[in-house]
Amino acid sequence: MTRLRILYITLFSLFALWANGQSVDSLIAYADEQFTAGQFNLAAKEYQRALFFGPSESVGALTVKTGDCFLEQKMFSEAEKYYHFASNIIQDDSLRFEALSKKSVCLIHQHSYQQAILDLFNVNTEFSARATNQKEFLLGTCFFGMGDFKEAETHFHLALEEGEIAKKETIKTLLQSKKLMKPDPQTAYWMSIIIPGSGQIYSGDFKSGINSAALYFGFMALLLNMTFTSGWVDAIFTVAPWWQRYYTGGYTNAKKIAFAKREANRANIYRQIFHLINER
């Protein structure tokens, strides 16, 4: 009978221990629920409470979750700090990959492609083919962002399964498309230097091209008019600075417009690749 009593007491004590662990778990569950509901600040606070009181094994995973709260709010540099910290302490390959790939997403959003590439090259993804695919996709994105489309193609191909030949072909054509390089900012720049307004029209902004040409030729007419009526000294001091100002403004703008258009073209092509790889 006494033995039985001891057994009972031991069992209940164990139950109590389990219940205590349970309360950190239920805290995390609560935080998860808040996260799903979009209450990211509240979730971040409760994850940190769990970090503070929970067992040391869960620190890595909880740090990643705290980072997620910032990533969801598009606070990339803040989120990056948490992922970076997590990736340094996590031992488990799969979780470490999660931390590092999320970190690289933050870096890509901040245009720090080189740093993201370094992180991704140093992460082990042998544990799952899916993780390897994801890593290659992220690497491809980095190279795409840097304008290295050949390297991007290699990595996007590795992001796909062996058998997905049709998709690989599509990506190849997309990445060799001339649209990635057009309109060329340098071409637009020189065109507008030679014929004001032409670079803008080449870049597809007809309105701005006409506007620029009108200002240029308008001021030129005024300059000539003044040269004949008041002499070249007055013309140079009063009108020439304005004439020069909008001439310079014109070709600088042409370059900018071309650059923006090219960026939009690239973004469009990337979006297609994104869907090809991520929609299965």
Binding site: D68, L71, K74, S101, K102, V105, I108, H109, Q134, F137, T141, F144, G145, E263, R266, A267, Y270, R271, F274, H275, N278
Partner: peptide, 9 residues
């Protein structure tokens, strides 16, 4: 976290 990349460029 990947879907946020769709419009990153």
């Amino acid at each position: 976290y990947l879907s946020s990349l769709e419009n990153t460029f």
